[in-house]
Design a protein around this nucleic acid. Sequence first.
DNA 1: TATTGTTATACTCTATAACTATA
DNA 2: TATAGTTATAGAGTATAACAATA
Lengths: 156, 156
Amino acid sequence: MAENGMKKALGAYTNLIRATESVQGLLSRQLGSLGLTMGQFQMLEALLHLGPMSPGTLCDKLLCGSSNLSMVIRNLQRRGLVVSRANERDERRKMVHLTPEGRAMITKVFPIQAKLIRAQMSALDGREQEILRRLCKKLGLGNPARFAVEMTKEVG
Amino acid sequence: MAENGMKKALGAYTNLIRATESVQGLLSRQLGSLGLTMGQFQMLEALLHLGPMSPGTLCDKLLCGSSNLSMVIRNLQRRGLVVSRANERDERRKMVHLTPEGRAMITKVFPIQAKLIRAQMSALDGREQEILRRLCKKLGLGNPARFAVEMTKEVG
DNA sequence: TATTGTTATACTCTATAACTATA
DNA sequence: TATAGTTATAGAGTATAACAATA
């Protein structure tokens, strides 16, 4: 029945968004008190755990546009937390690196943030967390961000 | 084991965020093409389904600060979609109303948005959606609903 | 010409604090 | 004094388009 399917979808969506905002709001406020925004944290974290990357690769990892990414890089570079250097083989390409200051910052902040994430997620037991992970993964895969625009066109 | 618990929590968190950003990104882009931001849509939707409200009540419903709310009201008022009038009993209090134009806008947009939500959530079957809803509810407990009306209205 | 990335522009959201008006 | 709401200020993310530099 179509109506029932719609209700179920809206119910799942609403609670998904509410849970995410609840968790993210808390994490974002903690980051703010540590001197980072969520976008900055994500970039530093990617650079820490995956190593230096080009802006283009960062766009893919962080799911954001190249223009927005330049802004985040600029804000971090201004504070001396990252630096972007041209690649010698292809000078169009650049590589974004953590500076020692940036590495110190993310090395300090990441465990604090992780601890709060664990605390938040502990509203669910281990089995529930695993189920949530699996369902969300399925949901994310069904909606790859890169094809977002094309999918939108079909709905209007 | 603490390490294992941390890993599981981070895995669940990461996929939760990814799924939400995937879905929200798409919805936000669709709203953009229809002339609304997510915050504006939420306010109009609350006014449509719950009726006129004071800014303070809207703050509670939409989980945002009073200052940010004033901004959203101002942007909508400038476009003639809402109007805020002083209450005659207590002139400190105001009531935010949909204008006919605002009502027409949200009445048009809500079903379109709902349809895309259903399409997005259909990456999961009904049983999975129900499990996701329950887990997310547990995770986000204590926060007010995002949609004024979750399950009871017909939405085309 | 195509690709990579930055700038320009303009808007919205967010957070904090100061402010106004009413009670 | 306390409450409801707005304004001021500053900063960050977003989208689009124009742009430069390199391949």
